[in-house]
Nucleic acid binder design. Structure first.
Lengths: 253, 253
DNA sequence: CAAAACTGTTTCATAATGTGGGACAAACAT
DNA sequence: ATGTTTGTCCCACATTATGAAACAGTTTTG
């Protein structure tokens, strides 16, 4: 599989330019990417031509240009989330060995928008694109817990808490304190609630207004998950969630 | 000035990929950019390698990848705004002939973060990087008008309305109804308030929470600006402001 | 105020690099 | 089963990118 060098070089240059918000010059870039001045000059001129970088006025320093922003502005938010989360999900799955996933609230349901498969012989099925109720899923309970009280109560009032498995919460008065605990702990877990034998963990991703926008989830069969290293799994997941929140906030203001 | 073709091609491909949120295949891309399948395949493979595009799971369709997002997530919000606004400012200046600018609120002041020069022999000076008070500048009055009441009143209460020019508002009781009018009209204008002989116009840019985040401004000497085509100038500016608001909302959710 | 050290751009010979025709395999539709 | 699409691979060809060095502008230094 052959690749195109100049493109790889261009992106290496973009990385460097992006890392210098106040602008970088040709020479500085050429040193960091270990390429010759003239090459960097040509590549930067090309990138400027396509709008990927722009020159600071009254100087010849480069910064990231408008075309990259307009490129991603065409991309729907879900997809941006998926892209943002992708490396973290892969890392989580690599570290923990179980499937990880990404869910967003979708009205009164949860929508699974991504899932990274582990290598286990026994694993959960593929849920990408599927919707499930808020009260019986890891991510759903997390969303309920972090929604504003009014939205949470409206759900508990209007939606019957249908039983999906042996441990599903079907009584609002039992679910409420559980949600409070989830909110206090900052993560959510399930065991035999959505399906018997299925265990899961979910941590939140917040936007710049502290609204919950998505959940990172980890699932596995309950005989194996979370296992002995429960604390380690939890801290890995929480850490990933925090990092994604930070990233999202940076990109959204 | 020579440019690197493969990079230009890569970005043409990225444009197409970005325009298809649900994924595009090699053949479809090759038709739209009018390049051969094998070339597109190679370029896309390279772009995938650097993370600029990613394959949809269980298919060979491409969508925009995580690296572009992480690139721009390193870019501070001001700079993103500048990049977002840049094409609009240039267009406005080209259409109207006067300097256009971009301002953000910065505490109790206005910060000018960008300015596009026109070709006039008599023109305003360069304000990039400068700060000025809220009550005597076009953008500042716009911010005051669209701030929450509490923040507006605190400013009017705590800050003396210093006179900068003959028509500066120095009495809060006269400024208040003026701000109300600005809010109702959706734009702000100024004449001999910041400096004698200086006229200006400002339109708002809002974020997804309807908070005002920036102002697009147009300045000129009052003997020439806004001139006969006042209505046309205004509608051009308002239109640009609306488009930038839309873009910002798209990229922020 | 000139010399020195830096900047970024340009030129140009060289060959390395990217190109596209076509063959190939794999998936899908008929 | 055949036919039609998909994406990838191979390879000869020359177009295309490359880097050394020279150049032209700026800023720093003495």
């Amino acid at each position: 599989m052959s690749t195109v060098q100049s493109i790889e070089r261009a992106f290496a240059i973009l990385q460097v330019v992006a890392a210098h918000p106040d602008g970088v010059g040709v020479t500085a870039v050429s040193q960091q990417v270990e390429m010759h001045k003239s090459t960097v000059s040509r590549l930067l001129a090309t990138l400027e031509g396509v709008g990927a970088v722009a020159r600071l006025p009254e100087s010849n320093l480069f910064r990231i240009g408008p075309s990259l922003l307009s490129l991603i502005s065409q991309v729907p938010f879900h997809q941006q989330l998926i892209a943002l989360a992708s490396p973290f999900l892969h890392q989580l799955t690599a570290q923990i060995g179980e499937d990880s996933g990404l869910c967003v609230p979708d009205g009164d349901q949860v929508l699974q928008i991504d899932q990274v498969r582990g290598q286990q012989q026994i694993q959960v099925r593929n849920w990408i694109g599927e919707r499930y109720p808020l009260h019986s899923s890891v991510a759903g309970k997390l969303f309920l817990a972090f929604f504003a009280e009014e939205r949470r109560e409206r759900y508990l009032r209007e939606r019957p808490l249908i039983r999906y498995a042996s441990q599903t919460y079907t009584d609002p008065d039992q679910l409420r304190p559980h949600l409070l605990a989830i909110r206090q702990h900052g993560y959510s877990w399930v065991l035999d609630e959505f399906a018997d034998g299925l265990a899961g963990l979910a941590v939140p991703i917040f936007d710049s207004n502290n609204q919950i926008v998505a959940a990172v989830t980890i699932y596995g069969p309950s005989f194996r998950f979370p296992g002995d290293n429960r604390a380690a799994v939890l801290s890995l997941a929480l850490d990933a969630g925090r990092k994604m929140t930070d990233l999202l906030r940076q990109s959204n203001r």
